[in-house]
């Protein structure tokens, strides 16, 4: 039983990790190519979840909802890039932080305006309901396994996109020398919009996928955004590989910490105290890991710049 629980927690950690990767990949790509810190990335996650829940409720199909989430988040991303973000590339980080913080306020209140304060619910599609057996005699939710699968597929897809395609070549060129590729005739404005929309679409996809596990509500993107920041700080800002490693690390450390720390402390104290101390420490564990990694490597594990 203990092994089964352990495996289950590892899978939960992986699932959180791949979700964080979908968020962090967009953030780190946007920072790497455009040098922009985007706090509103969590809002795009929320947009994806709301689009999926709305379309799924209207049509009865989760899959249409999923497609809608990608489209809506990518479209929202492209629109804010053209209207707002574009003006921020040449500004300092303080302006970027403020403007994207303003976007969060607008998105959150705007969504509350449109959908009200009550959370929406999104059902797991029939195809992915049910459980599968895992070693140790227990069963695990099929949907969560599917999420892990989607995360791996996206990671592979992104890797192929960036290393094998023309768009990927331009993205890499944009990271190393944006003026030069502009001079070579690449339409850099469109490239930036495409990269931003790509990152936004990934965030929206993550929001929709997680929406079926939790409730869909305003502010759901903010905790994930902050975890994604921790991920890219650990992985090294601008590095997709760093985002993947960081995301899995954060997902596993957070989940396993919450699972194992109270048990560890129960060897030393009463169960209720152990739950308290272990729980409080577990909630801080990923930040402690981040601090430890930064103490050794201030630029993160796979720094792309500097």
């Amino acid at each position: 039983m203990q092994t089964a629980l352990f495996i289950e927690q590892v899978l939960n950690g992986l699932q959180l990790g791949v979700m964080l990767f979908l968020m962090a990949a967009g953030l780190t790509l946007i920072f790497g190519v455009m040098g922009l810190i985007n706090l509103a990335h969590g809002s795009l996650y929320m947009v994806g979840a709301f689009a999926c829940a709305t379309v799924a409720a209207a049509t009865g199909s989760f899959w249409l909802g999923l497609a809608a989430s990608l489209a809506a988040a990518a479209a929202a991303g492209a629109i804010i890039e053209i209207l707002v973000i574009r003006r921020l590339y040449e500004r300092d980080h303080l302006d970027q932080v403020l403007a994207t913080f303003a976007l969060i306020l607008i998105f959150s209140e705007g969504t509350r305006w449109l959908f009200g304060s009550f959370p929406l619910y999104l059902d797991i599609p029939p195809l992915l309901r049910g459980t599968v057996p895992i070693p140790g005699g227990s069963r695990y939710q099929l949907y969560r396994l599917a999420i892990i699968g989607v995360g791996i597929a996206v990671a592979v897809g992104l890797f192929l996109l960036i290393s094998k395609t023309r768009l990927g070549m331009r993205i890499r060129a944009g990271e190393s020398d944006r003026e030069m590729i502009g001079a070579l005739g690449v339409d850099i404005r469109t490239l930036y919009t495409v990269v931003f929309a790509l990152g936004a679409g990934l965030a929206g996809l993550a929001g929709a996928l997680v929406g079926a596990l939790q409730s869909v509500q305003v502010g759901m993107g903010e905790p994930v955004l902050i975890l994604a920041f921790v991920v890219i700080v650990i992985g090294g800002i601008g590095s997709i590989k760093g985002a993947l490693v960081g995301a899995l690390l954060v997902g596993l450390v957070d989940t396993m910490g919450r699972f194992l720390l109270p048990q560890l402390f129960s060897l030393l104290m009463t169960p209720s105290q152990a739950g308290l101390v272990g729980g409080a420490l577990a909630s801080m564990l990923i930040y402690i890991v981040m601090a430890a990694i930064l103490a050794v490597r201030p630029q993160g594990l796979f720094a792309a710049r500097g």
Partner: peptide, 16 residues
């Protein structure tokens, strides 16, 4: 650290 790292790390610690 500096720049965007500093922003994210201070945010992360406050969140902690």
């Amino acid at each position: 650290t500096s720049g965007v790292y500093f922003i994210m790390i201070t945010l992360a610690f406050a969140q902690m």
